[in-house]
Design a protein around this nucleic acid. Structure first.
Lengths: 137, 137
DNA sequence: ATAAATCCTATAACATTGGTAGGATAATTT
DNA sequence: AAATTATCCTACCAATGTTATAGGATTTAT
């Protein structure tokens, strides 16, 4: 299991935008500078977050990005699914798998595990991450 | 994030061995048949489980595999780490990452997340999986 | 000895990851 | 209107990881 760069950079971009005091939003270029991510690579990160509807901007010059929701209404799972639609366990996802042993104890476990992992990722909001509110643990 | 075949097959092999009533243990060949996994591929799965010390056998003909511990003393995390030593979040693992922003809220989150994920994987024992004891939830 | 079974090493197709490159498009400033 | 700023969009690519397969060496029971 691995948390890849897209998801990690996506998190940092979201934190960057959420932390900004500027009412005009944050420029992609500035996120790239703050977070030390190549502008071109950030392109694809921003595109995914935008497609998921987590951030928005206007077009052309001077168009900063803003969150579309309150940061306490955005979870890590929201950000995660901007990049990967699900947590992949092939024997759950794919009907063709598991032809033989679908009284499979292992599969039963993974189904439960996946659900609990989604809950774990849904637990923390962006604002909790930014303000480091540990009293929720 | 993905649970790969090695870990999934490893789980099934462990469940197979744990479920066996045979005091001689279970032959690799028989696991391959039961679980519909190629004997050759299972080779590497078994090797990893053995290296981790979760199973043991004697050499040569007729040597079945047995668990080295009670199934209620073996967790999914034990099996997981037979194949991957850790849950990979590069910005945690690798010191060279994160040169700039190591007052990084994102990184703080991933450290906490990783710990909770390990706890989740450590929660269920092999016997709980086999007997489907849901009263622990 | 022979057969059964694992142990060990190499190879390989395929997918994913982590980017780079180049230009098109849209709006703003001069 | 022209130049500039900044995103938007498509293609490409090297490195790595996944999911195996192949072939033989080794060990021990019979």
């Amino acid at each position: 299991m691995k948390i890849n760069t897209k998801i990690r950079y996506g998190m940092r971009a979201m934190i960057d935008i959420a932390s900004s005091q500027n009412p005009e939003g944050v420029l992609q270029k500035d996120i790239a500078i703050h977070q030390d991510i190549s502008l071109k690579y950030l392109d694809s990160i921003i595109a995914a977050l935008k497609l998921k509807g987590l951030i928005a901007n206007s077009k052309g010059k001077g168009s900063g990005y803003k969150l579309t929701r309150n940061p306490d209404e955005i979870t890590v799972w929201d950000i995660y699914t901007a990049f990967e639609p699900t947590i992949i366990v092939d024997c759950i996802e794919n009907k063709k798998f598991c032809s033989r042993s679908c009284d499979c104890k292992s599969r039963d476990y993974w189904i439960e595990f996946k659900q609990e992992l989604i809950e774990l990722l849904s637990k923390k909001s962006l604002s909790q991450i930014i303000f480091n509110n540990n009293h929720t643990n």
